[in-house]
Amino acid sequence: MTSATSLFSPVEADLRILSENLIELVGTRHPILSAAAEYLFGAGGKRVRPAIVLLMSRATMLDEEITLRHRRLAEITEMIHTASLVHDDVVDEAPMRRGVPTVHSLFDNRIAILAGDFLFAQASWHLANLDNLEVVKLLSEVIMNFATGEIQQGMTRFDTAMTIEAYLDKSYYKTASLIANSSKAAGLLSGGSKEIVDRMYGYGRHLGLAFQVVDDILDFTGSTEVLGKPAGSDLKSGNLTAPALYALAEKPYLEVLVERRFEQEGDLEEALALIKDSQGIQKARELASYHANQAVECIGYLPVSESRQALIAMSDYVLNRLY
């Protein structure tokens, strides 16, 4: 299977610069917050979101060098993403993320929340300094969308009446919004036409939705080692994702188990078995494939380049995580 990092070869040097700049951008005003930020950015990660921004930048600038504003946009994108993860981990009470201790487990909840707020604030400050009002609006909307998605998720826990449409809306707010709006922002900084930047937005939106659906499938099919958390964690917490929602239409008893919140011994194991015995996971795979293919269609208009090819290959990478 192709790794994410191998897809990023056209922007490999750009990502090295980004990694060096991130800790410097946060600053050293407060040692505890700086330590938390240094831990976060030093913990690695695939840097998928800033890589997409850099690939979009290079795919639209072609033979011209990308600007410092393109680079700063990629850095801001990673800061916003990281801030959202810090807050998510506190809300989810997660001690680990991808096998690495979370900020709140290393420090405490108060420091983690403040560290997340600090990163959002720093990202907003650097965003304002791009001096592009349209880009500021796009990335500010992302921060609002994160909060909207978290609230929606909290309000729909164990809600067996939730529709696939509502699930996709929530997935857009929590995952796809950042990829979509930062992709569009890269196009705006390149001076792209309305049609071009709208298609860049469409690519990010569909790729982000495919990415989230695949993540949700892996919660049922992945191992604890791969996931960095116990399999079935989302279901146990009442977060009903695509495989469970599709299975509910096929397995009536699953609704009983969910609505009593898996309170009886063996409920969760029975629910997982029902989902795996249904067409839920297969239908979710088809949903992810649809959005990955739509992403490729959106990007097909761009001139042929290494960066465009990497963006197209990214949709295959997202789907191949399932196998």
Rank of each mutant, 00 (worst) to 15 (best):
T5Y: 09
A13N: 15
D14Q: 08
E20S: 15
L22K: 10
I32G: 04
A37Q: 01
A37Y: 03
E38L: 13
G42F: 10
A43N: 11
L54N: 03
L55D: 04
M56V: 06
E64A: 13
T67E: 07
T67W: 12
R69M: 15
L73Y: 10
S84V: 00
H87N: 07
D92F: 14
E93L: 14
E93G: 07
V103P: 04
V103K: 09
S105H: 11
D108L: 03
N109Y: 12
R110M: 00
L133M: 15
S140T: 15
A147F: 01
E150W: 01
Q152D: 11
D159Q: 08
D159C: 03
T160L: 11
M162W: 10
I164Q: 07
A166G: 11
D169V: 04
S171F: 06
Y172R: 14
Y173C: 09
T175D: 06
K184S: 00
L189P: 01
D198F: 08
M200T: 06
M200L: 15
G202L: 13
L207I: 02
E225M: 05
S237C: 10
L240C: 03
P243G: 01
A247L: 08
Y253R: 15
Y253T: 11
L254A: 05
V256Y: 15
E259G: 14
F262A: 00
E263I: 14
E270K: 04
D277M: 07
Q282N: 13
Q282W: 06
R285M: 14
N293H: 09
I299D: 09
Y301M: 10
L311E: 13
I312C: 00
A313N: 10
D316F: 12
N320A: 12
